[in-house]
């Protein structure tokens, strides 16, 4: 089992250790697992760079930094996180002197290439906008949260559809006449301006 754990930790394509952690809990009932190996697995399963051991090789440090990054990203899904925050959280400020922006970008890009993070880097504002990040550990509490979010979304959709049905006015003659005067592709350019706005403002609903 110890060998299996080490292989998973050192595999550059494995970033989720929840299943292995659960399996270890089961195996441990019948045969003991080396506590140091188990502790390492626990760190990779739900720990971060602060828990790293000085005895590890560089690859393990890199992987744990990536896992720390996706933990941080998960707290900022749908919003932005600054390079400075990433630098501190990943303890990159403790590394030998180098270009901090380059180092932060390197880790973000590695996470994106490994498909554990989706987002956009803005080097000008020194921020990362997070669209999605891998969740490292899904416990029952988190699954309940997800179910609740989905239920609320469905409920809102049902409400809005019901209210739209109730409040839809009948189509008047004048509306029909106006719609005939609209553009050939069925989009009225008076209402729907396709041109980019100079101030880049969004359209009002």
């Amino acid at each position: 089992m110890e060998e299996k754990i080490s292989q998973a930790i050192d595999d550059p394509n494995v970033f989720c250790f929840q299943e292995l952690w659960i399996e270890c809990q089961e195996v441990q009932k019948s045969q003991p697992i080396d506590s140091a190996v188990l502790r390492t697995l626990e760190i990779f399963c739900r720990g971060d760079i602060r828990d790293a051991s000085s005895e590890w090789n560089e690859l393990r440090f890199k992987k744990l930094r990536l896992l720390t990054l996706i933990d941080l990203a998960n707290r900022h899904v749908g919003s932005s996180v600054s390079f400075e925050t990433i630098l501190v959280h990943l303890q990159l400020d403790r590394l030998p002197p180098s270009d901090p922006t380059f180092t932060v970008e390197y880790y973000i890009m590695q996470a994106m290439m490994n498909q554990i993070l989706v987002g956009k880097i803005n080097a000008k504002t020194q921020t990362l906008h997070v669209s999605w990040a891998l969740e490292r550990f899904l416990d029952s509490k988190r699954i309940d949260e997800m179910k609740y979010s989905l239920d609320r979304f469905i409920e809102r959709c049902s409400n809005i559809l019901f209210q739209l049905d109730a409040g839809t006015p009948s189509v008047s003659k004048s509306f029909k006449r106006a719609s005939r005067m609209s553009s050939s592709d069925g989009i009225d350019y008076m209402v729907f301006d396709k041109r980019p706005r100079p101030d880049d403002t969004d359209f009002d609903l």
Binding site: T101, I121, N122, A123, K124
Partner: peptide
Amino acid sequence: FLSEFFEVSSTSILAKH
């Protein structure tokens, strides 16, 4: 590839990569 990761990139850091 990078155009999918970046919204705005610095030319100097791109050159460094």
